[in-house]
Design a protein around this nucleic acid. Structure first.
Lengths: 137, 137
DNA sequence: CTGCGTGCAAATGGTTTGCACTACG
DNA sequence: CGTAGTGCAAACCATTTGCACGCAG
């Protein structure tokens, strides 16, 4: 299950360390697109000696190497996403919840739209939806 | 030109202070969705005595009262937008530039799509596109 | 006048940094 | 073995806070 991750690390010439594996697993298991703090809290139990600085360094390097993504928010606290496939996000206005939203039809619709409609002076690389609203409790 | 702004302040029961006006003007004039620092830098010339704390307080209160919006980014530095109408954002992957993108056809397309396709357990309130790519120099 | 708003400076807290040490390959 | 990676603690810096004063209504 972390096999994919270990392979990816090697591909990128990054060493497979227990810290990296633990941090990656934390992001995968913690739903809701965790913060660095969430990760630290989560791994504390099984890896009490991983330091805060390491967590931040690992997160940065995983983002840089495209094994994680940063999630755009309007908070100054960073959040991370382990899902790399093309998907959108649901942002709850009441809680801090952010959930993934996959919708292939929507992707097709949008990419068709922009196949015709070019944006002047801008070369589109990727399009994501931020869907804001409320989860039904 | 700041008339709209002054009216809105009154509507909300907020006092019209020179600080608030200056900060709002800064956001409007600074394109590229400025940070608090950008605002501070900008108003320093004409209002050298507005304090940093005030800028943050004013920004917060204007966001809370819907006279400004926070822009979602993957940076831990907050950025602000004075344009309240429904629009999307172009994010440049090379520079920090964020530009507004208005496209009524697109808005219609998307709102039609979600008129039929409901998201389970989620009540949509607003949908924004993050269009990532590159500006042609 | 009266309290909302401001200035100031200190405090906060998430993130970064530097360096000696560790362990992956 | 040699170097990428880690742990630790101090440093950083955007933002927040508390309080006395000032000014908009």
């Amino acid at each position: 299950m972390t096999h994919f991750f270990r392979e990816k690390l090697k591909e990128r010439g990054l060493k497979v360390t227990p810290q990296r594996v633990a941090i990656y697993e934390a992001i995968v298991n913690l739903k809701n697109h965790p913060t660095a703090e969430n990760v630290i809290e989560y791994i504390k139990t099984n890896h009490p000696n991983i330091s805060v600085g390491t967590v931040y360094k690992v997160l940065d390097s995983l983002v840089e190497n495209e094994l994680l993504k940063k999630v755009k928010t309007e908070k100054d606290i960073m959040r991370y996403d382990a899902i790399l496939s093309n998907h959108h996000h649901l942002y709850c206005i009441e809680t801090e919840r952010i959930e993934d939203y996959e919708d292939e039809n929507l992707n097709v619709l949008i990419s068709n739209y922009f196949k015709n409609k070019k944006i002047k002076n801008f070369k589109v690389q990727d399009i994501k939806l931020q869907i804001t609203g409320k989860f039904n409790k």
